[in-house]
Computed example of a mutant assay.
Amino acid sequence: MPVQTHGPLPGGTTAPAPGLRRFNDAPAPEAEAALLECFGSHRWAQRLAAHRPYPDVEALLAAADEAGYDLSPSDHTQALAAEVSPALGPDAPHAARLALDAAHAEYERTFGHVFVICLDGYRPSEHPDQMLAGIRERLGHDEERERAVTADEMRRLARGRIMALVSSQ
Results as ranks from 00 to 15, higher is better:
residue 3 V to R: 10
residue 5 T to C: 08
residue 8 P to C: 12
residue 14 T to Y: 08
residue 16 P to I: 01
residue 16 P to H: 04
residue 19 G to L: 00
residue 20 L to Q: 01
residue 21 R to N: 08
residue 22 R to P: 01
residue 23 F to T: 01
residue 23 F to L: 04
residue 25 D to S: 12
residue 27 P to Q: 05
residue 28 A to S: 12
residue 29 P to A: 10
residue 30 E to G: 02
residue 31 A to D: 04
residue 31 A to E: 06
residue 32 E to T: 11
residue 33 A to Q: 12
residue 37 E to T: 11
residue 37 E to K: 15
residue 39 F to P: 00
residue 40 G to V: 07
residue 42 H to P: 06
residue 45 A to C: 06
residue 46 Q to G: 11
residue 46 Q to E: 12
residue 51 H to I: 00
residue 52 R to I: 02
residue 53 P to I: 04
residue 53 P to E: 03
residue 56 D to L: 07
residue 63 A to S: 08
residue 64 A to H: 09
residue 66 E to R: 12
residue 66 E to K: 13
residue 68 G to A: 12
residue 69 Y to T: 12
residue 69 Y to E: 12
residue 70 D to T: 10
residue 70 D to G: 15
residue 71 L to T: 06
residue 71 L to P: 10
residue 72 S to N: 05
residue 77 T to C: 05
residue 81 A to R: 15
residue 82 A to P: 01
residue 87 A to V: 10
residue 88 L to N: 04
residue 89 G to H: 14
residue 92 A to C: 09
residue 96 A to C: 02
residue 98 L to P: 08
residue 100 L to R: 01
residue 104 H to M: 11
residue 106 E to S: 10
residue 112 G to L: 06
residue 112 G to H: 02
residue 114 V to N: 00
residue 115 F to H: 08
residue 118 C to F: 02
residue 120 D to A: 15
residue 125 S to Y: 03
residue 125 S to K: 11
residue 126 E to M: 14
residue 129 D to P: 02
residue 135 I to P: 02
residue 137 E to I: 07
residue 140 G to W: 02
residue 142 D to C: 10
residue 143 E to T: 14
residue 144 E to Y: 06
residue 144 E to N: 10
residue 146 E to Q: 09
residue 154 M to E: 08
residue 157 L to P: 00
residue 157 L to Y: 06
residue 159 R to G: 14
residue 165 L to Q: 03
